[in-house]
């Protein structure tokens, strides 16, 4: 265990834990948009920045990636970090003018309008890469990835239409913090729409009740990964013994 201070309060944390985790455990709220416990720290949204004083040195770091250390002093509300957070959210407000989630976060940070011209073709994607990281780190597929760089960057399928690796599991949809990825199941078909591309996947009907309950490719993937026979997986949760 290490002992250190957050906002003047002395707390203990496990070695190797991030400042953000330790703060959360102690009910100290630090805003984030690109953090999810299922995936590794990434440090892209910069909302979680805090000031850390270690000995004589003071620096501004992302608390999602910075590990706790004995004797450090963390300031989660310094003038500097508040400035960064407000600017970041102001920039995102202009990027995603339609996003309710961004608007709420902005409000929380005391920002109601943006001085920048809202993007006309703006979608809700803030490029936090949670979707691509979940696909790679949790599902193990890398079916979608971030393509291009800088302002041209986007999360997409290879060549926008190459869905061979996608098992239609919808992990990217569930993890997206702004609802930029949409999914709809209808008449035996699942449609997943990423900001700039969309694909349809066949759903499997339960061999007992006939309800379309899961994507065929996901069941095949699960069978291959687990070694369980495919037939055994083709029964929906309600019908399983």
């Amino acid at each position: 265990m290490v002992t250190f201070k957050i906002d003047g309060k002395e707390i203990k944390a496990k070695e190797g834990q991030t400042v953000l985790d330790a703060a959360t455990e102690n009910n100290i709220e630090i805003p984030t948009l690109c953090v999810n416990e299922s995936v590794l720290p990434y440090g892209a949204c910069r909302l979680c920045m805090v000031d850390v004083t270690k000995g004589k040195r003071k620096r501004t770091v992302t608390s999602c990636a910075y590990e706790v250390a004995e004797g450090i002093e963390v300031d989660t509300k310094s003038e500097k970090v508040i400035k960064i957070r407000r600017m970041v959210i102001e920039l995102l407000l202009a990027r995603c003018p339609e996003s309710e989630e961004i608007r709420q976060m902005a409000e929380k940070l005391g920002v109601t309008t943006t001085r920048f011209k809202p993007d006309e073709d703006g979608d809700a994607c803030i490029l936090c890469a949670l979707c691509t990281r979940a696909c790679r780190e949790v599902v193990g597929k890398s079916a979608i990835s971030l393509i291009n760089r800088g302002t041209e960057r986007e999360a997409a399928l290879p060549f926008y239409d190459e869905a061979d690796d996608c098992i239609a599991c919808g992990s990217c949809v569930y993890i997206c913090p702004t609802g930029a990825i949409k999914m709809e199941d209808k008449a035996g078909t699942r449609t997943i729409s990423w900001p700039n591309c969309s694909q349809e996947f066949k759903l499997k009907a339960c061999s007992a009740c006939g309800f379309y309950f899961a994507p065929e490719k996901q069941l095949e993937f699960m069978a291959a990964e687990s070694g369980v026979e495919l037939e055994k997986l083709e029964i929906c949760m309600s019908c399983r013994p």
């Binding site: 440090g43 920039l91 990027r95 291009n148 760089r149 800088g150």
Partner: peptide, 17 residues
């Protein structure tokens, strides 16, 4: 702006603005 990788918000969105 053109060479920014686009990972973090201040660089990607900020330089453009």
């Amino acid at each position: 702006e053109d060479e920014s990788c686009g990972k973090c918000v201040p660089c990607r969105e900020g330089l453009r603005r």
